[in-house]
Simulated scan of single mutants.
Amino acid sequence: MMYSPNTEFLKGVLDSLAATKIPVHFKLPDATVKEPFFVIGNRIDDDTPSSKFGAVIDTTLTIDLFYPIASRTQLEEAIFQAKKALGQRRNITSDIRIDDSIGREVYHVIFRVTDYIF
């Protein structure tokens, strides 16, 4: 079965993150699910035609990593492994925060993955 380029992009991200052995969800799980886990979130597209690439979609995907607050060193390793698993992209940024929105204090890393979909 053939899927849309956007579906293939999301599947590729899901498969890449699976290599980290950290569970991946497409929505925030309930409070009984312990971290670490990823949540693949919003995606923003720009499909303005480009003279350089032709038919291409410029997409930015948000991925959240919720990680136990116990060790900043282990968090930094998890961030490195996630970026390594995602591979070559146009751009990957990460923003580290301390967050209690899931009912307990955790590290919350917000990744923004920007890439072209052909």
Rank of each mutant, 00 (worst) to 15 (best):
R104G: 01
S71F: 01
D47G: 07
A82H: 11
K27Q: 08
L17D: 04
L14M: 02
F80D: 13
D64V: 11
V39R: 06
Y116D: 11
S51T: 09
S51D: 08
V24A: 14
A55H: 04
S71W: 01
L10E: 14
I69R: 15
A19I: 12
V33W: 00
I102E: 07
F53T: 06
M2I: 11
P49L: 08
L75A: 02
N91I: 05
F26V: 04
T62D: 15
P49Y: 01
Q81Y: 08
R43M: 12
S94K: 07
R90N: 13
F80L: 08
R97T: 14
Y107E: 00
F38L: 12
I98R: 12
M2D: 10
K11H: 09
I22C: 02
T60Y: 02
E35W: 12
T48I: 09
V106N: 03
Q74V: 00
D47V: 02
I69P: 09
Q81W: 09
E8P: 00
H25V: 03
D100Q: 15
L86E: 06
M1H: 11
G87P: 10
T20M: 08
P5C: 07
E76R: 04
P23K: 00
I40H: 01
D30T: 03
I22W: 02
G12E: 03
D64H: 15
I22T: 10
P68F: 00
G12V: 04
F38K: 15
Q88L: 12
A19F: 06
Y107M: 04
Y3K: 11
K21S: 14
A70E: 07
P29V: 14
I102V: 14
S71P: 04
P49V: 05
S16A: 15
Q81C: 06
D45K: 10
Y67L: 08
Q81P: 05
K21T: 15
S4I: 04
V33P: 00
V39D: 05
E105I: 12
E8Y: 01
K52R: 01
R90Y: 08
H108F: 13
I69K: 12
R104P: 00
S101H: 01
K27D: 10
G87E: 02
D115R: 05
F118C: 10
K34V: 05
S4M: 06
K11S: 11
V13M: 02
Y3V: 07
V13H: 01
V24F: 06
E76N: 10
A78F: 07
Q74N: 14
L14P: 06
A85D: 11
S16T: 02
S4E: 11
N6I: 13
V113C: 09
P68S: 02
T60S: 13
G54F: 03
G54M: 07
K83E: 15
M1T: 09
V106E: 06
G12K: 09
Y67R: 09
H108R: 15
T114E: 10
V33C: 00
L17V: 01
Q88Y: 03
V56W: 05
I92T: 07
I79L: 08
M2V: 12
T7L: 12
T32A: 05
N6V: 13
